[in-house]
Write a protein that binds this DNA or RNA. Structure first.
Lengths: 107, 107
DNA sequence: CATATGTGTAAAAAATAATTAACACATGTT
DNA sequence: AACATGTGTTAATTATTTTTTACACATATG
């Protein structure tokens, strides 16, 4: 399991704002049990395929999803699947305060 | 310390989107060490007083800040101070999945 | 070449959030 | 009544995010 930690406030904010959206949490939930590709997720959640792809990319970028290229004997011969990465974040006031402080020192 | 837990996905999303913003984290950081009133926070962070007040209210509403009315011998004779409530949130994939599930059952 | 099925990406439109200015109100003192 | 200092709230403006549509591309097969 991935235990997320943060060195900067913007990093933390990036994660929190990514997850502070029901749609993106739904995408994460959709790929928790088994890997899926973007079109599958889109159809399952009733959102457009490009949007599902964007969200999967964003989740992947933050380390919350893993992208895997899969090949097949029939079309499409190549597709990109994603599956959720088990993770844990501990968020508390001390963390926020210490990140604020280190921002001030850098600034 | 307050250990936050969630019964619904919207609740979780409300917290995450509230904190997924550098400005509001700054407000929380500003009142972590000692209580302050809205105008003080606004001046310290360089934002407008109504905005500081709105954020303090939002943080209070989610239990992350505590509002206290203070009286004084000179104007203003009454002012509302806020201080951060130490809190901790553990966020992980299992939580997200279980909240998604309970939403489906309710829906 | 066409086919099948999925993907990447950008522009544009729509929706939402952020933020301010303005104004009325609160409180006790003079 | 005026004063001092802060607050509550809303409408309007600005900024940001969400989301879609459209189009080109990827891949192997026929």
């Amino acid at each position: 399991m991935l235990t997320l930690s943060f060195s900067t406030l913007p990093e933390l904010v990036r994660l929190l704002s990514l997850l502070g959206n029901e749609q993106r949490l739904a995408v994460l939930g959709a790929i928790a049990a088994e890997e899926k590709y973007a079109r599958e997720v889109a159809e399952e959640l009733g959102i457009s395929r490009p949007l599902a792809a964007i969200y999967l990319r964003q989740l992947e970028k933050l380390g919350l999803a893993e992208g895997i290229s899969r090949t097949s004997d029939e079309p499409p011969y190549l597709r990109r699947c994603y599956r959720a990465v088990p993770f844990e974040v501990v968020l508390n006031l001390d963390l926020i305060v210490s990140l604020e402080r280190s921002k001030d020192e850098t600034g």
